[in-house]
């Protein structure tokens, strides 16, 4: 579904005419380009759940934005089938002046639900987000946790064919994280394709049956393509299992005390 995708960002150094003039006079470059995602190709079958891993700035979010359709690739192409929902980088696209309720309807509409569908699922979404009486105040007054909860709740209830989850759960508290992971396991079970971005090795190991590792924009490990590749292999590749071993040690330790 993803073929030779590249995304080039242009960094503009000079914002105003004056700065531009100064830069030109000094012979400095006006802008510089860099590749956030560099020639990435992979194919995903419906129902697979993919763990996307990599260090900060390795292009994970950009890749998800391209899959989601917010960004268009500068090279190559992305083809998908079905409805895509999910959360990209720190929560959903909410309008700060609108109330939670209005944002809920708007987000659902953008994700392709009609009014009847939204009404039918409304209670379920609100229940899951456990926003309660804050539903009718503008989301700019929400705590970051509430913001993320509502966003996740809408995205997870739209019955999408592809679900993208990008570290959004980082702000949630532990019970909510657990609830989200359960819900994601549930939709995974229903045959939804999942893209899951996380730095938590154990969680990826449980959630995903395939791992993609990005390193400065390049796809360097694909557990399906690399011979003998596995999810654990991908985690090992990133040297994330140092922490995993510590965790095991800690589990043992915990039982000791």
């Amino acid at each position: 579904m993803v073929e030779n995708v590249s995304k080039i960002f242009t960094m503009h150094y000079s914002r105003t005419l004056k700065q531009m003039a100064v830069s030109v006079a000094k012979g400095l470059p006006l802008s510089e380009t860099f590749k956030a995602v560099d020639d990435v190709s992979f194919t995903v079958e419906q129902g697979e759940s993919i763990g996307l891993m990599g260090l900060n700035g390795s292009g994970k979010s950009t890749l998800l934005k391209i899959i989601n359709g917010v960004m268009r690739p500068d090279g190559g192409r992305v083809l998908t089938r079905g409805r895509i929902a999910g959360l990209i980088a720190k929560g959903a696209g909410f309008h700060p002046q609108l109330t939670g309720r209005e944002n809920l309807y708007l987000n659902a509409a953008i994700l392709g639900m009609n009014e009847a569908e939204t009404n039918a699922k409304f209670d379920e979404i609100v229940d899951f987000a456990s926003i309660g009486k804050f539903l009718d105040i503008p989301v700019s007054h929400y705590s970051s946790g509430m913001y993320a909860r509502l966003g996740f709740s809408v995205a997870v209830h739209v019955d999408a064919d592809i679900f993208l989850a990008d570290e959004v759960l980082a702000v949630g508290d532990r019970p909510f994280k657990k609830k989200c992971m359960e819900k994601m396991q549930e939709i995974r079970h229903q045959g939804t394709t999942i893209f899951y971005v996380s730095h938590a090795a154990a969680s990826v190991r449980n959630m995903c049956d395939r791992v993609l590792v990005l390193e400065s924009g390049r796809l360097t490990y694909d557990s399906k393509v690399v011979p003998g590749g596995s999810v654990q292999g991908g985690i090992h590749y990133l040297h994330y299992d140092d922490t995993t071993e510590e965790e095991h040690a800690d589990e043992e330790l915990g039982s000791e005390i």
Partner: peptide, 10 residues
């Protein structure tokens, strides 16, 4: 405690 909770697959 700060780690992501692990939930077993369905």
């Amino acid at each position: 405690n700060n780690q992501m909770p692990v939930v077993a697959p369905v």
